[in-house]
Amino acid sequence: MDKHVLLIDDDPIFHIIFTRMIKKVYPSLNVNSSLNGKIGLEYLNKNYNINDQYIILLDINMPIHNGWQFLDGIKKKGIMQNNNITIFVVTSSTDLDDIKRAKSYGFVKDTLSKPLSVDSLNHVLKPLIN
């Protein structure tokens, strides 16, 4: 069983910061970066394995496919019920509407605000580490 961290965010700086932090804290984890929701879905289409475990960190405001479109897409795929994907919405928005909307997707585990601290990173990655 492999463990994957999927980062879907259009901000390349966030990718850099995030991958470096993970490398510092959990050097063994494999991080995949997608710059928008469409690329993220395509990655899953190609590489999804029912025996693997996935953590997805999803931004909301992105070009091409935004976070909502990604959530709708993955819901349609019907792979959430396999219980091997955990999704966190990570956004720089403090907009309550966004947070409410994210919660309306039952399978979104939590909503986190950027920037991610080491503490919130630990919280997010817990399911993979244990």
């Binding site: 470096r20 510092k24 720089s92 950027k114 920037p115």
Partner: peptide
């Protein structure tokens, strides 16, 4: 207000994220 919430916070969160990283490195 939307700009405040979304656009201003994007670079701000980036700045804070970089600082977090510098602390770690």
């Amino acid at each position: 207000a939307w700009t405040q919430s979304h656009v201003v916070r994007a670079p701000l969160s980036r700045i804070l994220g970089i600082i977090n990283l510098i602390e770690l490195e």
